[in-house]
Nucleic acid binder design. Structure first.
Lengths: 354, 354
DNA sequence: GTCCGGATTGGCAGCGCTGCCAATCCTTGC
DNA sequence: GCAAGGATTGGCAGCGCTGCCAATCCGGAC
């Protein structure tokens, strides 16, 4: 190892023209590309080219540079790199919540695909609040990302304006029911709701109730709800009752919601939940109170979580391709595809609870 | 609005000395701080000061600047800001998985606290692979973060070296059983395992089995396992049998794991699972096969997920302060606290399954 | 009216890296 | 042996913003 340097720091040179950095008690400064260039006795651009495998250079040069990098423990500064080059390799991802496993799934798909393309993701959470969405979108845009992945098609005017004005590519996920800004990847929540209604009606259920969570915030759940009512209508039915808890969806909300609804509408023969978490709560209520499922009460969820498949009776639900949606959106953004709508569809899982 | 400019772009000036940017068909370029300064007829540093509420300026100036910002739709470029100032406002977070809700919980706590401090987070996932951890740590370090949050205390030598050499603050989370690099926030997995064993032994269970997942990758689960065996040993007991599935933890792995174990060791009277997801799967197995819980078989989990609390019989488990750990680590990192170990402890929940 | 000290303000040199362009080094062909 | 043309290479001007420092302004105090 050379004098005065350790793996990650070099002695800071004492004056502006002295580049040798051998001042004795000087402060330490991070290793830069210039340090590597000096160590390898090549130009800065050459180091840059080698590190990015971009442009041409000889095998001998590559070896010298890589050697110097290893010797100095150089870590490239992507902040500087991004500023200097025109486009960043960053994608911002905006999701409403980390509590519902649906969004980590989306993240999983997106980050995996992104990584493959050499992109990194920055994540922000809105808590289902459109004002917070506007704020985090602004915050993400200040990193000059190559693209943004947001959830749903509904945004307040400020968010919409910022997104449009920024000129960055935007992918809106998990919904295709409505006009999108640019790239849209998802499935129809409305159709999913309708399909659920048709399924229950087709099975002969007539006294069907709905247990949902905060629909004002979760617009996709609201669309499923609307689609569900439509589907019931087509079958000549109407909701026999409904219970909406003001909180986000959860097993707890589902359990207590079903309990409350049954107290009001005891002769329900089926319950449609705003998602699988809620439905699992409902299932637990039935188990705890000895209500035979689906004989006494049928249950239907949404999302197709693993846990539903493993219940003693597999949950009747709709499986949504969340991971795939994240991955598809990421790939489209990276590839610079034209504005488009990708409807990935969904799959109705009959299960054994309805 | 001035001629030739719209909300987010200004006409690019045709030559290097012409700053007026009124070339007719020129390309568009993003609005910069210099544009705002010109529009507000103040200096660049003044705009910078106003935007960061840092330094002093008159009320009149603030109004003019904010006016210009609004008129031009200026979005500050944090890439440039970070490069120019010494420290970034970024914290990197490295987690092993997004599939297990534990890590989104950690993220939730961390991002909430970080946001409050004006920091942004960049997230990377390792899939429980130490080599991938090394790679993503390198990748995160290239953003020159102010700090890094990683999971667990076990890292391969390369990761350790990079972390140390980088000079950035590091917080290691969710475990306190072992030496840390810098800041450590978590709880003792070993003690949790031992406490679980003592609880089961104290309740009179004697034929106790273990159902776990891939312990080679999940070092914290391995520590709980070790602690559990120790705890049993103190009570004069030994594991009556164990089943390890090679996959990550899941409801499915728990259900099938218990089934397999019971096939081999039918007279088990209690089952300790590597976590609540696994335990939920075990519970489902019992329900599906009519095994009375806890009379025929007691169940014990780990993590204290909501779902366990809402089962018909609340799950006996250990509640871990995951969200709090994320938040604590984030706050310590931001505040520049000294290296320290924070043991947040855990809480044994008796539940009704043991 | 003049002077003083604090409040404001503007200028400008970098932060570390990349893109462009010119300089240099090899080959290969004749 | 010489020139043409591609392969390598180095120099350096920014990318957009912040930090430092000097310049300017302002409101009393004298």
């Amino acid at each position: 190892m050379d004098e005065g340097g350790n793996e990650a720091f070099a002695a800071r040179s004492g004056s502006l023209r002295d580049d040798d950095g051998r001042e004795e008690g000087g402060a330490r400064r991070p290793i830069t590309l210039a340090d590597v260039a000096r160590e390898a006795r090549v130009g800065e651009s050459t180091v840059s080219r080698v590190l990015r495998s971009h442009g041409s250079f000889s095998e001998k040069t590559r070896a010298r540079v890589e050697d110097a990098v290893a010797r100095l423990g150089y870590v490239p500064n992507r902040i500087a790199g991004t500023l200097a080059s025109t486009g960043s390799r960053l994608i911002g991802i905006v999701i409403p919540s980390l509590t519902n496993i649906v969004f980590p799934d989306l993240l999983r798909g997106a980050t995996a695909a992104l990584e493959q393309e050499g992109f990194q993701s920055v994540i922000a959470v809105t808590d289902y609040d459109q004002d917070r969405e506007e704020a985090v979108v602004g915050s993400l845009l200040s990193w000059r990302p190559a693209g943004l992945i947001v959830t749903g098609l509904e945004h307040n005017p400020g968010t919409r304006r910022r997104l449009l004005a920024s000129g960055v590519r935007v992918a809106e996920l998990l919904d295709v029911d409505g006009p999108g800004l640019d790239i849209v990847v998802g499935y129809s929540n409305r159709a999913a709701g309708a399909a659920s209604a048709r399924h229950l009606a087709g099975r002969g259920y007539r006294r069907i109730g709905y247990i949902g969570h905060d629909l004002a915030r979760d617009r996709r759940a609201a669309k499923r709800y609307a689609g569900f009512r439509e589907g019931l209508g087509e079958a000549g039915l109407a909701l026999a009752g409904e219970e909406r808890v003001a909180s986000p969806s959860s097993v707890e909300a589902g359990r207590h919601g079903l309990e409350a609804l049954l107290a009001r509408v005891p002769d329900l023969d089926a319950a449609y939940f705003s998602n699988d978490d809620m439905a699992l709560g409902g299932y637990f209520h039935c188990l705890a109170h000895g209500l035979p499922v689906p004989e006494r009460l049928a249950l239907f969820g949404y999302n197709g979580l693993d846990v539903g498949r493993l219940m003693p009776q597999p949950l009747a639900t709709i499986r949504t391709p969340r991971v795939e949606a994240g991955a598809t959106a990421a790939r489209l953004l990276c590839s610079g595809a034209a504005a488009t709508v990708v409807d990935l569809g969904f799959e109705l899982i009959e299960g054994a609870t309805a």
